[in-house]
């Protein structure tokens, strides 16, 4: 699998992971879990606006919002995640997706290969069940973005 359909920020994250040894990759995932931003106030008090990704082993909720880009023409998608501190692996992957995809356009997000989580080099250290949760998280984002994009056009 090549990384050439990945948006630049996500490709950079994948490169960072691939350059590391396995224990260092887990450490990096932990850093992403710490870096996952808190929900903004308007979502914090409205859990009903978030959807649960049931495939994740730990409770993981997400939603997207659209925003007009600076050029006034294109639309970017903002990503929001909520995962408990006691689920660092799930949070870590949410952090990767947030840093790699937040604010991008529908076509950029939809071009990400569905099995992108496997590019992080964690398939030995993390159980297949959890890897599937990660894939499901990406799949949910893509489905939501595709649906929102169809409505706009």
């Amino acid at each position: 699998m090549s990384t050439n359909t990945l948006p630049a920020a996500l490709a950079e994250i994948v490169d960072d992971f691939q350059a590391l040894s396995e224990p260092e990759r887990l450490q990096l995932l932990l850093e992403f879990s710490r870096g996952l931003p808190e929900l903004p106030e308007r979502l914090l008090n409205h859990p009903e606006l978030l959807e649960q990704v049931v495939e994740c082993q730990s409770p993981l909720f997400l939603t997207i919002e659209t925003e007009r880009k600076d050029d006034g023409e294109t639309t970017g998608y903002r990503l929001f995640f909520k995962a408990p501190a006691e689920a660092p692996t799930t949070r870590g992957f949410a952090g990767v997706l947030h840093e790699g995809l937040d604010g991008l356009t529908a076509s950029e997000i939809l071009a990400v290969p569905d099995d992108m989580p496997e590019l992080l080099g964690l398939t030995r250290a993390i159980t297949p069940l959890r890897m599937r949760g990660m894939t499901a998280m990406l799949g949910r984002i893509k489905r939501k973005v595709a649906a929102a994009d169809r409505l706009r056009n």
Partner: peptide
Amino acid sequence: DVLLYETGHIPGAVKIDWHT
């Protein structure tokens, strides 16, 4: 969760991961 120990654990505790 393979990363939970790293977020904080009982002082002096070592980690054994069932999977790896």
